[in-house]
């Protein structure tokens, strides 16, 4: 094989095995797409009707009932922000020990590392809406369920990235502190923490940004925030009020994104 390549002096980007794998992957994607299209239950009338219906809906949304904002939307929007922020803070509190458990250069036990990873993966595999459903069942409807849902969903994300940052920390300074007889807590605080601090803030900000978006839906299952307003306005077919809520969500999400980008630029 190599002999032939040398002989012919042909440069190929990929080995035949790689090309075959790529071809198989393309084929599988196309096959899956076609199979899905043929079997999915879509009512044809709905499909042909969709553009007209969307236009009709947008028509009813416009103009948005902005006068409704102070009375009906503002408080819910602020609650959404609180849910996102408190949820993120709480998730950090929960994520730090799990990250320490799953970082191989800190916890020197494969079984415990695996346990930590399992916790992180389960947290990420359950959508925040499902977490919200579970916590509504436990704590009843309201912002508490929403905050916990955001926190539990974020643990996996924050913990995973934090554990990666810990594992990437330079071993030299840590070794030096251990050689000086520092107890484990001091090694963490003075050896690891200064090294992972930039990553930590970056992850926390990033997750807060995501959580602002996520917390807007929690109200759909009764877990507080602006989703509640959205849901009740839809149930009453008050589309101009739905538009107001959507505009408010859009504005807050964009503002959060701008804020996070600015903070990252300044401090990191």
């Amino acid at each position: 094989m190599t002999g032939a390549v040398l002989h012919d002096r042909i440069w190929r980007r990929f080995t035949p095995a790689e090309r075959l794998a790529r071809f198989a992957a393309y084929l599988a994607i196309v096959a899956a797409f076609v199979a899905s299209l043929r079997t999915v239950e879509v009512i044809p009338e709905f499909l042909y009707d969709a553009p007209e219906q969307m236009a009709d809906l947008l028509n009813r949304m416009w103009p948005a009932d902005l006068a409704y904002y102070p009375a009906g939307v503002h408080a819910a929007l602020v609650e959404t922000l609180h849910i996102a922020t408190l949820g993120t803070l709480f998730s950090i509190v929960l994520a730090v020990p799990v990250a320490l458990l799953s970082a191989r250069n800190i916890t020197r036990s494969a079984a415990l590392n695996w346990l930590g990873k399992l916790v992180l993966v389960s947290s990420r595999s359950v959508n925040s809406l499902v977490w919200a459903l579970l916590f509504v069942a436990v704590f009843g409807p309201g912002a508490l369920a929403g905050t916990l849902a955001i926190a539990f969903r974020s643990v996996g994300f924050v913990g995973k990235l934090l554990a990666e940052a810990l594992e990437e920390a330079a071993p030299g300074p840590v070794e030096a502190l251990r050689a000086a007889g520092a107890p484990p807590a001091s090694v963490l605080l003075k050896g690891f923490w200064p090294q992972v601090q930039p990553a930590f803030w970056s992850v926390a900000l990033f997750r807060w940004d995501i959580n602002v978006r996520e917390s807007a839906v929690l109200g759909l299952v009764g877990a507080g925030g602006i989703g509640l307003v959205l849901n009740s306005a839809m149930d009453l077919f008050q589309w101009d009020r739905v538009a107001t809520a959507l505009i408010a969500i859009f504005a807050v999400v964009i503002a959060a994104e701008v804020l996070v980008t600015q903070i990252r630029k300044r401090i990191l």
């Binding site: 330079a170 030299g172 300074p173 070794e175 030096a176 502190l177 251990r178 050689a179 000086a180 007889g181 003075k190 050896g191 200064p194 090294q195 601090q197």
Partner: peptide, 18 residues
């Protein structure tokens, strides 16, 4: 015991951000 043994490293091993 390690407290009584100082060590100096080739790559200094300082905590860079402190």
């Amino acid at each position: 015991v390690r407290r009584r043994i100082g060590m100096v490293f080739q790559e200094y091993n300082l905590v860079e951000r402190l």
